[in-house]
């Protein structure tokens, strides 16, 4: 049933995702075309037009980037609380499975953006030096703190941390929205905001408590770069952070699931 639910998620959400990606690529193609025309024509009108379109493209890029955070939240509200909730909550599936199925779609959207965003930038500027420049920039930052990018596991864990952090942020919102709208008849929006603040506060404090466990070892090093050279320790920190985020995500999903079972309140 999980496979069918994942398929159901993609059926409902792929159009919005593809629209964002297509919009970014399309916008970059327009910018690239105008750049070529400007370089060959060289008129002040073309310069102005190119400048305007480039500015719009940058705005579009920022909106596209924001959409990978906004679209999953909007979809969650539409499909779990609005009229579509009458179908979602009457499907013969466990609520927990329904929530888990969203992860695949959420992550695919993020991965898609990680691929499309820099690709769109490269198309707009007309070369792939941007990718090289980005890679050089990341490498420089890693070297500054002493991490050698050749350490694949470390980089892999770092990427995993980005993905789980994205899920954690998404589920902070989903859980807070659920708590605010299911548990209260009035002041739902305000309660949702308060729940969000509470979730961030509680999870932040838990993370701090766990970080204190590494405090002794961190203080034994003289410089930050010394920590970074201790690859095993860096990998351990990254792994602990990933596990902690994953536990938070599971916890938030469990709370959402429980509230749906006991106090569902469609809008």
């Amino acid at each position: 049933m999980l496979g069918k639910l994942i398929k159901y998620e993609f059926i409902n959400r792929w159009k919005a995702m593809i629209s964002v990606f297509a919009g970014l690529i399309g916008g970059s193609l327009v910018v690239a075309l105008l750049r070529v025309i400007r370089e060959s024509a060289g008129s002040s009108f073309m310069n102005g037009l190119f400048g305007l379109v480039s500015a719009l493209y940058v705005v579009g890029m920022l909106l596209g980037l924001g959409s990978i955070f906004i679209l999953p939240l909007y979809d969650f509200r539409q499909r779990f609380f609005k009229d579509q909730g009458y179908l979602t909550h009457t499907l013969p599936v466990k609520t927990g499975t329904l929530l888990v199925s969203r992860i695949a779609c959420d992550l695919s959207m993020l991965v898609g953006m990680i691929i499309v965003f820099p690709l769109s930038l490269c198309i707009a500027v007309g070369n792939f030096d941007v990718f090289r420049a980005l890679a050089d920039m990341v490498n420089t930052i890693l070297k500054m703190i002493g991490i050698n990018a050749a350490f694949g596991l470390t980089v892999g864990l770092f990427c995993g941390l980005i993905l789980i952090e994205y899920l954690f942020n998404t589920w902070c919102f989903n859980c807070a929205y659920t708590l605010g709208h299911c548990l209260f008849e009035k002041g739902k929006k305000i309660m949702s905001v308060l729940f969000y603040i509470a979730i961030v506060f509680i999870t932040g404090n838990i993370a701090t408590l766990i970080a204190n466990g590494f405090k002794g070892r961190i203080e034994s090093y003289d410089y930050v770069s010394d920590i970074a050279r201790d690859v095993a320790f860096v990998n351990l920190i990254l792994t602990v952070m990933i596990v902690l985020m994953a536990v938070f995500v599971v916890g938030l999903m469990a709370i959402t699931n429980r509230v749906f079972k006991k106090r569902l309140n469609l809008e």
Partner: peptide, 28 residues
């Protein structure tokens, strides 16, 4: 979730994703 498999529910509102095609709803 088991009883939902034997209950057919028609609410008083449109509860499908209106961006879907009819055949996609049939597929669901």
């Amino acid at each position: 979730h088991q009883s939902k498999g034997v209950v057919a529910y028609l609410p008083e509102r449109t509860y499908f994703n209106e961006g879907l095609k009819v055949k996609e709803i049939v597929g669901i």
